[in-house]
Amino acid sequence: MTPPPSAPEPDSDDALMRAYALGDARAFEQLYSRHQAGLYRFVRRLLGTALAAQTDEVFQDTWLRLVNARAQWQPQGASFRTWLYTLAQNRVIDIWRRSGREVAMGDSEDGTPWEPAGGDAAWQQWPAPPSPAPQGDELAFWRRAGERLLACLDELPLPQRSAFLLHHDDELPLAEVARALEVGFETAKTRLRYAMSKLRTCMGAYLAPLQKEAS
């Protein structure tokens, strides 16, 4: 006979959400404390520079949606964090559409995703990854690289930006990215592939001049 599924750990997100659904306010406080920073960062970067002023609104509305849906919450194979980020993603889409921006959810692209020649040749001259306490030119390079990456993220279509942030910034496995975006696995994989191609192109174009300045 197949054994029943094991109960979640007492302090796991799923267990806390179940406790909150039953009226335990302290469980909600733990969830909020655990996920507020990551969720806020995700919302801010997903909205981009043009809509950054809406970050607090989306962040608060996401938690409000969680509160209102607590009685109906079921994990259904996805983690609590994936479900939380799905709520935020859907709210961001609402904001984009309300602002008049087009949210193209199709995943077809013209041509083949760009791949750098020679195994990321455009990036081979970058300094090594930053040390624990970068100094001087190294610190300036990686600070500017971070600024450029945020600018490049702003240029991505929203579906591709979501896939990149969930996978690389919030470290969700690709299967969880697909659940958060409410798409199939291959669709999520395609979005991530295009996002990475465009970011490589954008970062290479930006940082080549910076390399010359530093030399």
Score class of each variant (00 low, 15 high):
64 L>V: 13
150 L>S: 12
32 Y>M: 01
104 A>I: 07
166 L>A: 00
134 P>T: 04
61 D>P: 10
111 G>A: 10
65 R>A: 14
169 D>I: 04
207 L>T: 09
115 E>V: 15
156 L>F: 02
79 S>L: 13
43 V>A: 01
132 P>M: 03
54 Q>E: 15
67 V>C: 11
28 F>E: 05
57 E>A: 10
99 S>G: 09
80 F>K: 00
204 G>S: 08
209 P>T: 12
207 L>K: 07
11 D>N: 11
154 D>A: 02
69 A>L: 09
177 V>A: 02
214 A>M: 15
164 F>L: 08
61 D>S: 12
65 R>N: 08
103 V>D: 09
78 A>L: 10
73 W>R: 10
176 E>K: 00
49 T>I: 02
48 G>T: 03
144 R>T: 14
55 T>C: 02
208 A>R: 14
96 W>L: 04
157 P>W: 03
176 E>P: 00
150 L>N: 11
175 A>V: 14
26 R>G: 14
103 V>Y: 05
13 D>K: 01
47 L>W: 05
104 A>L: 10
59 F>M: 07
160 Q>V: 01
184 G>H: 08
108 S>H: 15
4 P>D: 13
76 Q>W: 06
112 T>L: 14
156 L>T: 04
134 P>S: 09
16 L>K: 03
118 G>S: 10
58 V>Y: 04
33 S>L: 11
